[in-house]
C-alpha cells in the first residue's frame, strides 16, 4: 500500500471527495468510526466532484473538472485509470450500474446525461434536452431506472427515466431551490434529496409520488448517499459529513475531516453487491 494512503478496509465504508483526494470513513453498523477515517486516494492536481463505487470489481469512479475526465482506481492500492477523457466539459454526478457494467454521468456545461461501459467504450448521450444545471444522478439497476436533479435556478427539478433515456418524466418541480444531493434506497423504494436553496431534506416514493419532509434547516448540502435508515450528506457551509436518521427526522452525527475545505460527492462502498438482476445483464 501507499504510505499515507490506505487500502479500503473490508465492510461498509463511506467514500467522499474533498477536492484533491478521496477519503473514507468506515461504518460499524450505522456508526461512523471517525478515528479510522483515512485518505484512500491522493489526486493532488484534481478537483473531484462526483464519486461512485463498483461493488463487483471494488473500484471507485470519479469525475474531475480540472482536466475534465472520468477515472477509476482499485481501492486495494491501484493507480488511477482513465475511463473517459474526451468530449467532457464539466462532469459532475456519476453513478454505476453494477449489473449491466455501465457508468452514467451528468455534464453541467454540455447539459447532457451520458452512459458508457466501465472501460469507457460504447459511449452514448441519453438526455440532451431541457437540462440546465444537471448535477446528481443515481441509478436503480434492478428496476432499470435513473434519477437526476437539475438545480437550474429558474426551474429546478428532479426527473427520472428508464436507463436508456426513454420514459422521461418530471417527479418534482414545486418547492425546490438548489437540489444538489440525491439518493435512492432500494429497500424502502424512497428517493430522497437535499436542497441548498430551501435548506430542506425530503423523500418521496417515485411510484406513488407521496412526498414528505425529513429534516429542515440543513445548511448547504452537496453530495448525498443512503444506507438503511441513515442518510449521509456533505455540506459546503459546515465542511463536514453529516448523518441524518430518516425515521427520526434528525441529525445524529457529524464528521469533520482534518482538512477544512469543501466536501463534494459521497457514496457508499459495500463489501458485497446487493442481490438482484436486470434485463440488460442477462440479455
Amino acid at each position: 500500500p501507499r504510505p499515507g494512503v490506505y487500502p479500503l478496509p473490508p465492510g461498509t465504508n463511506l467514500l467522499f471527495a474533498q477536492s484533491g483526494r478521496i477519503e473514507f470513513v468506515p461504518l460499524e453498523g450505522y456508526e461512523m468510526k471517525k478515528t479510522n477515517a483515512k485518505t484512500v486516494l491522493h489526486l493532488p492536481e484534481k478537483v473531484v466532484i462526483g464519486v461512485a463505487y463498483d461493488c463487483v470489481e471494488k473500484m471507485v469512479y470519479w469525475t474531475d473538472i480540472t482536466s475534465p475526465s472520468i477515472s477509476k482506481a482499485n481501492l486495494q492500492g491501484g493507480e488511477p485509470i482513465p475511463v473517459i477523457t474526451s468530449d467532457l466539459e464539466s462532469p459532475e454526478g456519476i453513478a454505476i450500474d453494477h449489473l449491466s457494467r455501465l457508468v452514467f454521468w451528468t455534464d453541467s456545461m454540455k447539459n447532457h446525461i451520458e452512459v458508457a461501459t466501465l472501460d469507457g467504450s460504447q459511449r452514448r448521450v441519453l438526455i440532451n434536452s431541457d437540462l440546465v444545471n444537471p448535477r446528481a444522478i443515481i441509478v436503480d439497476p434492478v428496476n432499470g431506472n435513473m434519477y437526476w436533479a437539475d438545480w437550474n435556478r429558474d426551474a429546478p427539478k428532479i426527473e427520472m427515466a428508464a436507463m436508456d433515456g426513454t420514459s422521461r418524466r418530471v417527479l418534482v418541480r414545486d418547492d425546490l431551490g438548489l437540489p444538489n444531493g440525491l439518493t435512492y434506497d432500494p429497500q424502502s423504494a424512497l428517493l430522497c434529496w437535499a436542497d441548498a436553496g430551501t435548506h430542506m431534506m425530503e423523500c418521496m416514493n417515485p411510484v406513488h409520488g407521496s412526498r414528505r419532509k425529513v429534516l429542515e434547516g440543513v445548511q448547504y448540502p452537496f453530495g448525498m448517499t443512503s444506507y438503511g435508515k441513515n442518510i449521509y450528506y456533505t455540506d459546503w457551509t459546515r465542511d463536514a459529513l453529516l448523518v441524518v436518521d430518516r425515521h427520526a427526522g434528525k441529525e445524529t452525527d457529524e464528521f469533520l475531516p482534518q482538512k477544512r475545505t469543501r466536501l463534494y460527492g459521497i457514496t457508499l462502498a459495500t463489501a458485497q453487491c446487493p442481490s438482484g438482476q436486470n434485463y440488460c445483464a442477462v440479455n
Binding site: R2, P3, G4, S19, H42, P44, K259, R260, T261
Partner: peptide, 24 residues
C-alpha cells in the same frame, strides 16, 4: 507539513496543505 510517497512513481505528495491550498 506532512507528506506521502506514491510507491509506483516515488512522487512526494503533501497531505496537509494550508487552508485554501492543494496540489502536490
Amino acid at each position: 507539513s506532512a507528506c506521502a510517497v506514491v510507491p509506483k512513481t516515488k512522487e512526494v505528495v503533501c497531505t496537509s496543505c494550508p487552508t485554501g491550498t492543494t496540489g502536490k
